[in-house]
Amino acid sequence: MRHIISILMENEAGALSRVAGLFSARGYNIESLTVAPTEDPSLSRMTLVTRGNEDVIEQITKQLNKLIDVVKLIDLAESVHIERELMMVKVKTSDETREEVRSLANIFRGRIIDVTPTTYVVEMTGTSDKLDAFVAAIDSDGIIEVVRSGPTGISRGEKGLHL
């Protein structure tokens, strides 16, 4: 099952490699990983998407908690949460396809943020499923590149991951 593990950790050099190293050393897989400092610059927030049965996820969270740089973590998949991923897609355009790409982008609530005579860059946020659907809807021959941030997430309500 897919799990989104959200980690609050010391914003120290090497902290990211401790997490990445743990996953490779113990044979866990990382589907995606995003990390950036929080409002407190001494802390980073990492969102990591992984897959595994309950036992594996339990070990992953325990092993992550053992890392000295990890302050706190939660498995977002355990409760109601919101997740979003950012994607930018560069597509080839011509007089015939320009309108189609624009309307598709509109349907998916994307924005066109760069225009050249032969290309569009479409920006889009949403769940990973939605972004997948957009990519599938576009003619694959027309795609020059797809850049995705990997999902990040936050729990609903008053609950939060903070000190």
């Binding site: 050099a13 090497g14 490699s17 401790r18 190293g21 050393a25 000295i68």
Partner: peptide
């Protein structure tokens, strides 16, 4: 050294 020992220490510092 910090990189090499990362998987076999409880923690390390530079």
């Amino acid at each position: 050294m910090v990189g090499i020992t990362r998987p076999c220490v409880k923690h390390n510092f530079l």
